[in-house]
Amino acid sequence: MAQLNVNIDKLKLANPVLTASGTFGYGFEFDDFIDVNDLGGIVVKATTEEHREGNKYPRMAETPHGMLNAVGLQNKGIKYFRDEIYPKLRKYSTNVIANVSGSTVESYVAVAREMNQLDHIPAIELNISCPNVKEGGMAFGTSCASAQEVTKAVREVYDKTLIVKLSPNVTNIADIALAVEESGADAVSLINTLLSMAIDIRTQRPVLSTITGGLSGPAVKPVALRMVWQVAQAVKIPVIGMGGITNAEDAIEFLLAGATAIEVGTANFIDPQVTVKIINGINEYLEHTGCQSVNEIIGALKTK
């Protein structure tokens, strides 16, 4: 068995495999299929300050090797999370990371401040990249100034590991990554979904109730990989890579490109055991290539 453990700031992961927010519920949904504690950690469904009903149905469209979603951050708000969900999450010994979203800087801060009090949540992932909400969300992640503003404000109230999740819907993602690094982020994760749409030609209407949505799945992997590589070149803080990872080979590509850890998203919908298979596959690759530790392949891409 090769050494699979990696560190993201103060966060110690037993292996580099995490789950992407919004694709893994709160972990409980997968208890029938895997031991969630086998994972490096889980990033649970986004939490906002207030209860959100999310967008109207239809919220999903299947596209070639991918899917569009327009869930719109449906969740019951931070108080419900703290009082009802968090106590149940304490059963997990692995890292439970909260995804924090908002519509104003103040609402991000309010959620982050509450999360800071929760002992069993060692890190938050600041979601400045959700394409499916009318206010906030991606708007914060598409300019350096607003990304800096929200990251700085949250940094002031959050003491533990602060990961900022970046939007791919920008001209230069490395600039945004540098901006949040300067503002106190301990790590960046990318990519969130790509703004996209699908049309039903029989009805001549958009498939999604919101017209546009976020594309995920294997279709986005080459774009995600390129962005992870660009960001890893630009910043000194750890990069968490995601976007269409479906098997160990995909995960290893992201590690080679410079990701210290990866998140598995849409693939959980097709195979609820895929995360464990990816961990095993990374280990096999390391043993096969004679590596003692996964750290030997992180950023090891040969370009010359």
Binding site: E29, R59, N268
Partner: peptide, 27 residues
């Protein structure tokens, strides 16, 4: 029968409107 992705209550795509807000058709 709504369009679903996961079927296990993780993605929240298949919701229907109920008197208690959005509920997942799958779970």
């Amino acid at each position: 029968e709504n369009t679903m992705a996961c079927g296990i209550g993780a993605c929240l795509c298949c919701v229907t409107e109920t008197t208690e807000g959005h509920k997942c058709v799958c779970t």
